[in-house]
C-alpha cells in the first residue's frame, strides 16, 4: 500500500487528506501527520513513500530549507500550499519538489499526484502549468510554442479533454506535452536526485531526446 506523511499544522488539512486517501483506488495510507517537518524524518513518517509538505509560510517567508533537505535525502515531496504565486511555485520545482499543488487543487489532484509520485511519472496540475507557461526567468528551459500553448490552455480550463478539443490534439498528446515540459524543468537549475531520476526515466522511455534537452 502507498504510504504518505503529511506535514501541515492545520488539523482540517489532515482530515481532508486522510478522507481523500481513504477513498483512493488503490487506497493510500496516511502513516503520520505533524505540524513540523520532523514528522517526516522520524518513524513511521521516515519510511513513507511520499511527503506532502505544507511550505509552512511564516513572517520570514516560505521554509525552503525543509524542502531542500527532504529532496536531498531522495524523498518524493509534493508541496501542498496555500501559496500560488509563480515565484514560490517555480522555486520549489527548482529545488526538486516532485510537484506543486495549491490547496485549492487538493480535492482534484492530491491523490493523482501521490500515485504519480510513487510511480515517478511527471504530474503537472493546472496552477503549476500556469506558472510554467508564464515563466519569464532567464534560465527557464526552452519550450516549443506548442508546449507553451498546451501549458496555458490546461491552466485555463483544468480539463485535458477540452484542451485536446481546442487544440485539435489527442489527450495522449496533451499529456506527453505536459510530461516533456516537466522533464525539461527537471533538467535545469539546482541538481537533485529526484530530478535526475525523472530525466533519466524520460530518456529511457523515449519521451524526450537528449537533443531536446
Amino acid at each position: 500500500m502507498i504510504s504518505v506523511v503529511v506535514v501541515d499544522d492545520h488539523p482540517v488539512v489532515h482530515a481532508g487528506v486522510r478522507a481523500w486517501c481513504a477513498l483512493a483506488d488503490p487506497p493510500i495510507e496516511v502513516v503520520a501527520w505533524g505540524t513540523d517537518v520532523s514528522v517526516a524524518w522520524l518513524p513511521p513518517g521516515a519510511g513513507a513513500d511520499v511527503v506532502v509538505l505544507d511550505l509552512q509560510l511564516d513572517v520570514t517567508g516560505p521554509a525552503y530549507g525543509n524542502l531542500k533537505r527532504l529532496v536531498d535525502a531522495g524523498r518524493q515531496v509534493i508541496v501542498y500550499s496555500m501559496r500560488a504565486d509563480r515565484e514560490t511555485v517555480l522555486t520549489c520545482l527548482d529545488i526538486g519538489a516532485f510537484t506543486y499543488l495549491t490547496k485549492v487543487e487538493g480535492e482534484e489532484h492530491l491523490v493523482g499526484a501521490i500515485t504519480a509520485a510513487v510511480a515517478a511519472a511527471p504530474y503537472t496540475p493546472p496552477a503549476l502549468s500556469g506558472a510554467f507557461g508564464t515563466d519569464d526567468r532567464p534560465h527557464r528551459p526552452r519550450l516549443s510554442p506548442r508546449e507553451t500553448e498546451v501549458l496555458l490552455e490546461w491552466f485555463h480550463c483544468e480539463s485535458k479533454e477540452m484542451v485536446a478539443r481546442r487544440l485539435h490534439l489527442t489527450v495522449h498528446r496533451v499529456n506527453s506535452c505536459l510530461e516533456r515540459v516537466r522533464v525539461k524543468y527537471a533538467n535545469v537549475g539546482r541538481e537533485a536526485p529526484t530530478k535526475a531520476a525523472l530525466v533519466a526515466r524520460a530518456l529511457q522511455d523515449g519521451l524526450i531526446t537528449t537533443d531536446e534537452l
Partner: peptide, 13 residues
C-alpha cells in the same frame, strides 16, 4: 493562509 482560509476551504471541499 495557515488558519481561517484553510479551514473554510477544506470544509467547502
Amino acid at each position: 493562509h495557515d488558519t481561517a482560509s484553510v479551514t473554510l476551504l477544506m470544509i467547502g471541499n
